[in-house]
């Protein structure tokens, strides 16, 4: 069972010409079309996100990881090709056919996201509890007591001291801000969680704690996670499946252990060689 399945997903930024696709990609060594200067952020990406598993998307900066995440999450609409999403009741939905309001509904109710930069995911002008309340509210809850209880529970579960829930996250440490983001993402009990470089800006000990938290949450809830990272160590710790991207293309795909033990593509070999 897959929760996402894409076929020939392609995303251009620019004028595009008929030869954009063949002149870019991992083999061409660029994602900018030499003829017309179009950036090919995604070049015929095929992937499957298995239900209840963590799929790691590894690649260097500019390889198209975040574009892929933005399209699947539903804040980018310009891609061609097919991207199917299986909702909790088992229906397959073509993401490209949804209008912006329907995509927002998916984002609000069925997806959760944690950004690298907490400023992107949190509103620093309201309290940490308020940030979580916002997500609880979109699910239709209109009882103050229930909202408060839910926010307390989520913060507690993600390891944020609940006595600080009425403070702005601006005064929190980086690790705690990430915990608030995770609590916010989980507020509506999503079935897919998008993690965009969640530990990149944290120091090693805090990184380890956040990774532990994610693993623990995953084990308890069995939600599907799309993990975007350039840190192969993070992917190794969390992901069961993995794709490696370069210049907008998927160059390698498989089980995490398999890729680590026996990388096929030269770029993957280089990547693993560099990190170990």
């Amino acid at each position: 069972m897959t929760v996402f399945e894409t076929q020939n997903l392609t995303r251009f930024y620019g004028v595009r010409c008929p030869r954009c696709l063949e002149k870019t990609g991992a083999a061409a060594g660029t994602n900018i079309c030499p003829d017309c200067g179009t950036v090919v952020a995604l070049n015929n990406v095929n992937l499957r996100v298995p239900k209840g598993e963590i799929l790691g998307v590894i690649g260097e900066s500019g390889s198209g990881k975040t574009t892929l995440l933005r399209y699947l999450y539903g804040v980018d609409f310009g891609a061609t090709g097919s991207a199917l999403y299986r909702n909790p009741s088992g229906e397959m939905i073509e993401l490209g056919e949804l209008d912006p309001a329907q995509r927002r509904r998916l984002r609000d109710r069925e997806f959760g996201i944690v950004f690298q930069n907490p400023h992107q995911g949190l509103n620093f002008r309201i309290s940490a509890g308020g940030n979580i309340a916002e997500r609880v509210l979109v699910s239709g809850e209109r009882n103050y007591g229930n909202i408060r209880e839910r926010a307390t529970l989520l913060l507690d579960r993600t390891g944020v001291p609940t006595r600080r829930m009425d403070e702005s996250p601006a005064g929190f440490s980086g690790g705690m801000q990430q915990r608030v983001q995770i609590a916010r993402a989980l507020a509506t009990e999503p079935c897919v969680l998008f993690l965009d470089e969640v530990t990149t800006s944290l120091d090693l000990s805090v990184q380890a704690k956040i990774l532990d938290l994610i693993l623990e949450l995953h084990q308890r809830t069995r939600l599907s996670i799309l993990l975007v990272t350039h840190d192969i160590g993070v992917a190794r710790m969390l992901a069961s499946h993995c794709i490696v991207m370069r210049y907008g293309q998927v160059v390698e795909t498989g089980l995490m252990d398999q890729i680590l033990e026996d990388p096929q593509h030269a770029y993957t070999q280089e990547l693993i060689g560099a990190s170990l």
């Binding site: 912006p100 309201i126 309290s127 308020g130 309340a133 916002e134 997500r135 509210l137 979109v138 103050y144």
Partner: peptide
């Protein structure tokens, strides 16, 4: 956009913050 999608969670959040404070 928020009006178009009748997305008024932010108004309730303001109310929530008011009650918290």
């Amino acid at each position: 956009q928020l009006h178009g999608e009748t997305d008024y969670a932010k108004l309730y959040v303001a109310l929530y913050e008011d009650v918290v404070r």
